[in-house]
Amino acid sequence: MKIKIEFTSHLQLIGITNHSFVEMDGPKTISQFLTECKINPEHLKYIITTVNKSQVDLSYILQNNDELLLYLPVGGG
């Protein structure tokens, strides 16, 4: 299965290029996917995840052709 991924540029995901398609070997949750990409665990506390423009939890199971967006706000206001 394949998903499209986009993320705010201060996030670092090992082996993943921003605005790219990612091949996955089977269904997995967003949390599992991000852990495999070695996301900073501190970022997981504050990350906003949307799939196909709907906000979802980290427990959401990614489906073929999903468009995953990861948004981590930065401070200042």
Binding site: K45, Y46, I48, Q55, Y71, L72, P73, V74, G75, G77
Partner: peptide, 10 residues
Amino acid sequence: DTVEAKTMLI
């Protein structure tokens, strides 16, 4: 202004 508050509201 804080990340925590921004995330909470979103």
